[in-house]
Each structure stands twice: as structure tokens, then as C-alpha cells.
Amino acid sequence: MLKKRIIPCLDIKNGRTVKGVNFIDIRDAGDPIELAKKYMQEGADELVFLDITATIEKRKTLAELVEKIAKEINIPFTVGGGINSIEDVSLIIKAGADKVSINSSAVKRPELISEIASQFGSQCVVVAIDTKFENNDWFVYVNGGKVPTLLKTIDWAIKAETLGAGEILLTSMNNDGTKNGFALDITRKICQAVNIPVIASGGAGKKEHFKDVFTQTIASGALAASIFHFGEIPIPELKNYLKTQNIPVR
């Protein structure tokens, strides 16, 4: 049986992980490789590295980091953040990433999805969607959730699939950071609207939230950052809990 995926997300700035981390058993929590290895050993199913470095000259640094990660990590990983062109994608994939995640750049130029899919395969294109519920509907936001668009989230997800996306990473801005649980209704709707895997993101605060998203939607995976970084929910404990709830996990 295909297992539900638990995916820690690491924010990277200038080659270092950001957000406070209080693991005592790793030497340097700001070192993305150390942190990634810890998650890998704990049973993370995949990793997402989100580069929040803004400047173009830092892109090369990112590719070098991806190369180091690829040498050490024996599970699949996705790299996202500021990927704007097929050249950016090529650099990251050749450095050893399994998938790239694109967000604002895909909204601005949807053909980027098809270009990546035809050159590297659909399986490596993750379309990340930041969504917010307002005026009675879910809309797409870009530029790190700062800029609203008129795109309805469901329409955009369907279009992304049609253009060749291999996966949707759906973050609800209403839920992100609240620790009140994933946005079940939009996650459910997107899962119903597309036939590609959907990863739920934003709002995880308790183990029960993972159970909810896996029992009340058909999401393929769930992504979280702070609860893993701060050691609030250790991955082995989360997986054991999900097993007791009859949710298939590795």
C-alpha cells in the first residue's frame, strides 16, 4: 500500500537554515545538511528545501548546497524558492535535486511548468500554491504570500496539472503559523479537482492534525516546518501515532 508522506520543510538563507532550532543532539542546527540528515534518520519521507535568499548571485551558492545535500541524503528532496527559468531548474536538477518547486514564476508564466515537464519530466515539477480564503473563495497569492491575484485556487491547480505539474504543494495562508490544523476544505477540494498528488501544508500544530488531513482528505503527504524544527513533534512519535490511527505510513 502507498504510504502517506511526512515532509519536513527547511528554510534556507545564504546557505543556512533559518528559524530557531533547539535540537541538542546535532552540532550545528543552522547547517542544512546536519538538519536534513537528522530528519532522514528519523524517518522523514522526503525533504523540501525552500531558499529564501533573494539575490541572484546567491543562486550559485544554492546549487553548491544542493550538490552537498545530494551526496548525503538518501531520500528524495525538492528545492524551491526563486526558481524563475528553465536555466535555474537545470542548475538545481543537475546538482542532484529530485524535484523543483515553483510558485510565483509559474503564475507569471505558466508555460514554465510545461517547459520543465518536457525537459525533465512531470515527476520533478512541484507547483506550490499559496492560497487565502477571502470574499467567500480561495485565491492564489504570489511573492511569498504578499501579493494577491485574481486566480481562483481550484482553477489554477487544474491548469497546473494540465500543463504538466507532477504534484501540488498547497499552503493555506489562513492556517500557516496558527498551529490550528491544516485547511481541510480547500485541501479536499484540490484533491478532488486534480489527479496528481497533493501535499497539504500550513497549520500543523498537533499529531491529530496529521490524522485529520489524512482521514478527511486524500492528500498524499503533509508538510510542516516549525513543529519539526523545534522538536515539538518528533517524526518517529508522529509516525507511531498515525500507525495507531490506521493511517499507512512508512
Binding site: L2, D45, S122, N195, I196, P197
Partner: peptide, 13 residues
Amino acid sequence: PPKEIVPQMGWNN
């Protein structure tokens, strides 16, 4: 077959 989630992506036994 169509109408299922394709690709299969993830861990299976």
C-alpha cells in the same frame, strides 16, 4: 488506469 492519482509517488512495500 485514468481517474486515479498518477504518478504513483511515494513509499510502497
